[in-house]
Design a protein around this nucleic acid. Structure first.
Lengths: 232, 232
DNA sequence: GCAAAAGTGTTCCTCGTACACCCATGG
DNA sequence: CCATGGGTGTACGAGGAACACTTTTGC
């Protein structure tokens, strides 16, 4: 009675490379949409939920240990989103730190979001949704940890944020905001200046490398606790 | 080779009734989980995507015209989330204004989130996720329009927000915040005071009855546009 | 010394919160 | 005229943005 339905997972894996936000894709060799670029993913296995599945599938493209964050975006379920048997996709955002350069298969490459080659099916919409999610979460969570190397200078971090957000970011204020929120801590080390000279930059790391919401309820927050046992 | 998989949609439909946030559920008559309360929903049809499907399925429980907002929450896909053939669920949040009292089937009733009877399968987790989403969006979008009647007094609106957020809300500040953001406009009418007297309350409405983000990028926002053509 | 890059101090301003005070109605 | 609920004015503070200024390096 009902048309048979398969379920797949797809991931927009983003990384900042050469000061540009890029996405991992592979070029389809076979129809449909041969020659176009597709997101990594595949059929959901019998014994896994979608989160497990997307991590398994990514392992076939890149070393999963390099993927620092994975989160569900939304379901793409238009009946004709792909030709042939019906296929419903759960889309994910994946993030890789800027200093890792995982080996990828021959048909797979990174592409800047601003110059995406023709994409297969509805994958362009998935990339856009992932980008939107990333931009939003950078501003109210500590998600920067997933794009940044273990240790970094503030100006390197500024470049990462600027590339991901798509607008200039002030190193001064970025440091102050993240420090005030307790997200950054100095390592004590410094990084030597480049050939042009300049003061050596202090190195920092994120205090926490799991997702934390740092600016929830900017407004309409609960009344101040005053003298009750404050929960920090 | 792969186990056959069905796809369903489920909705946590929330409404403020009697100053309490309640969810619509129906009591299962048959196993599995008979006697337990389940969220409205059902199998995805061949010619519809998940958004269309959830609206269609809700129409069987309540008059859809009463549902002012529907949004996707997330996918629930644990292999054993229900007994029998594998069933993947896309979960939704639905909202109904506090002044509508849609007719519902005999097996269906509203339950306060704080006193939820035993629920079927993983539906309790879906309700919790929907509640979290509602709380978050109330603070940075105009989503209040979906819970409120067409016209309302500020103190009625305060009660709605307090019930949804789970903490007291100041009418003074609520009005100021929503007005500053341009979300409220006075109708010019007033509502007569109750038997205890008091000044008649002015009536307001939301200027916009579709979802709008009003507080994006609380931090790390783009540099100020200065004298360029400002986009209001 | 000078240019370049990093880091700090200071000011301004927006905006949410808290709270005192004024307003309009019923009894 | 007083209790009750509605509405306004104001002061405070948190925190982000902008920018001037200082520090440390290479040449």
């Amino acid at each position: 009675m009902t048309r048979p339905t398969e379920h797949e997972v797809l991931a927009a894996v983003l990384q900042i490379r050469a000061d540009s936000l890029q996405v991992l894709a592979w070029q389809r060799a076979l129809p449909p949409d041969s020659g176009r670029w597709a997101l990594p993913g595949g059929r959901l296995g019998d014994d896994e939920d979608v989160e497990r599945s997307v991590r398994r599938q990514l392992a076939e493209k890149v070393d999963v240990r390099e993927v620092t964050h994975v989160e569900q975006i939304s379901v793409f379920s238009h009946p004709d989103r792909v030709p042939g048997p019906r296929l419903i996709a759960t889309a994910f955002l994946g993030l890789v730190p800027s200093d890792s350069d995982p080996a990828v298969p021959a048909d797979t490459a990174w592409h800047p979001l601003t110059a995406l080659p023709p994409t297969a099916f509805d994958h362009a919409a998935i990339v856009e949704a992932a980008h939107d999610r990333l931009r939003a979460k950078l501003s109210y969570t500590n998600l920067g940890f997933a794009l940044a190397p273990r240790e970094f200078t503030i100006s390197a971090l500024r470049d990462l944020y600027a590339a991901a957000l798509g607008h200039p970011v002030s190193a001064t204020n970025l440091q102050r905001v993240l420090t005030r929120r307790g997200l950054l801590e100095p390592t004590g080390e410094v990084s030597p200046p480049g050939p042009a000279g300049g003061r050596p930059a202090a190195l920092f790391r994120f205090t926490d490398r799991t997702l934390r919401v740092t600016d929830a309820f900017a407004v309409l927050r609960p009344p101040s606790e005053q003298l009750r046992g404050a929960v920090p």
